[in-house]
C-alpha cells in the first residue's frame, strides 16, 4: 500500500508537524517514508504545506502531482489542492475554518471541525492533531496506536503538551471512525 498526502494550511497551523508525525509513524512501522515541506517565497505569505509518502515499497518520485489523500486546514489550501486529489482519493476538510467544499464527485470528501474540538479541549493549536486523528481513522495509513506513540515521544520534553495532543488525536479519530 502507498499513501500519498498533501497537508496544507496557514503557517502556524502545524501542518508540517502533521506530516512529520505521519512520516515518523510510517518509519516506526518499518515502512518507506518521505516528507517534503514547501519552501520558498510563499512561506512569507503565510501558506504552507508538505507532502508525505508512506509505502511498503521503495519511494521513487517524492513529488506527487495527484496525491491519493489531501488534508486542507484553511480555505486557500482547499482552492489550491482540492483539485489535485486523485480520482477515488480522499479530501479531508477542516470545517472550522472552511465553510465551503469541493464540487468534485469522483473523490470522497470528509470534514472535521478541528479547531472547534481543539478549543473544547482547551487549546486551538491542537487542531492539527484532531485532523491527524481523523485522517488516520479514514485512511488507516498507519496504526493509530503508532501515532499515539509518536506523539508521546515527540513531546517527551514538553510533557504538558502530551495529554492535550493525545486527547486531540483521539477525539479526531473517534469522530471519523
Amino acid at each position: 500500500m502507498t499513501t500519498e498526502l498533501i497537508v496544507a494550511g496557514f503557517g502556524g497551523q502545524g501542518v508540517l508537524l502533521f506530516g512529520k508525525f505521519l512520516a515518523l509513524s510510517g518509519l516506526k512501522e518499518e515502512k518507506e517514508v518521505v516528507w517534503i515541506p514547501s519552501y520558498g517565497p510563499e512561506m512569507r505569505g503565510g501558506t504552507c504545506n508538505c507532502t508525505v509518502v508512506v509505502s511498503d515499497d521503495p519511494i521513487g518520485s517524492p513529488i506527487i502531482d495527484a496525491p491519493n489523500t489531501v488534508v486542507v486546514m484553511n480555505k486557500p489550501s482547499l482552492t489550491k489542492f482540492g483539485p489535485r486529489v486523485s480520482s477515488d482519493g480522499l479530501l479531508l476538510i477542516n470545517s472550522s475554518l472552511i465553510d465551503t467544499t469541493s464540487d468534485r464527485t469522483d473523490i470522497k470528501i470528509e470534514t472535521v471541525p478541528a479547531n472547534e474540538i481543539a478549543l473544547e479541549l482547551g487549546n486551538g493549536r491542537a487542531a492539527n492533531m484532531v485532523a491527524l486523528g481523523a485522517y488516520i481513522a479514514l485512511t488507516k495509513a498507519v496504526k493509530f496506536d503508532t501515532v499515539l506513540d509518536v506523539i508521546r515521544e515527540s513531546f517527551a520534553k514538553k510533557k504538558e503538551f502530551i495529554d492535550l495532543n493525545l486527547a486531540a488525536a483521539k477525539r479526531g479519530y473517534e469522530l471519523a471512525s
Binding site: 512529520k20 512520516a23 518509519l27 518507506e32 517514508v33 518521505v34 516528507w35 517534503i36 515541506p37 519552501y39 517524492p62 513529488i63
Partner: peptide, 10 residues
C-alpha cells in the same frame, strides 16, 4: 539540490 536538502527520509 533543494529537494535532497529539504526532504526528510529515514
Amino acid at each position: 539540490d533543494g529537494l535532497i536538502g529539504q526532504m526528510m527520509e529515514p
